[in-house]
Amino acid sequence: MSKEEFIRVDGRKPDELRKYSINAGILKNADGSAEIRLGKNWIVVGVYGPKEHFPKFEALQDRAIINCRYHMAPYSTTERKSPKPSRREIELSKVIRTALEQAVILEKFPEMSIDIFIEVLQAEGSTRVASITAASVALAEAGIPLRDMVVGCSAGKVSGKIVVDVGEEEDKEGEADLPIAIMPNLKRVVLLQMDGKLTHEEFKEAFEKALAGALELYEEQKRALKGLIEKMSEIPSEGDGNEQGV
């Protein structure tokens, strides 16, 4: 077996993420907001609520409802995408909602609803996990209580090799892809889907790689959120402590 490392179509190593950045609080009018750039993916999320759920008969007596809309802008893909919600968008709205429901403390807001609007401005593969990562930052920025952050990353099999953070081309050409979302502190998996075929060993390797990618993105989530407070203070987020008087 060759010892030469496998180089991917965009020049990355198998366990290398695309360039990423997360920003929180980017929209003035939404209660909470965030954007993520992951490679050429550019996703903006706005959160409203909690507010009284309407229509009333749909409201739940013991907890809040999350309304999630994942939407791809017509200019997000190489060919114009119809702005009408597609089957895929409706499905992704559902899987993102169920992933985030695990983290939000919904029991605090009975008979209410929280709206999450995800706009994919530019898409380049793995948008569902990038959307979850940004939506969780937007929820935290809105002051909605969370058990833990939710962070997602994907892995896949391309030319027989397991790679992390699958891009658009790799998604189309590859043999399999495995998007996951986790709650990093509580060590829980909140989303796990698989497209294609992987052997047991390959699955394990892909899962490990996606997990490592998610943990890397979790650090970026924390940096984005802590940056909001650092802007308002002189308190260092890292340091030896003790220097702050109370």
């Binding site: 209580p145 833990d148 924390k222 407070i229 308190i235 987020s237 402590g241 702050q244």
Partner: peptide, 12 residues
């Protein structure tokens, strides 16, 4: 050891 620090949701 610190008197003040920043936390994000989920941090112990």
């Amino acid at each position: 050891n610190k008197k003040m620090w920043i936390v994000t949701p989920g941090e112990k």
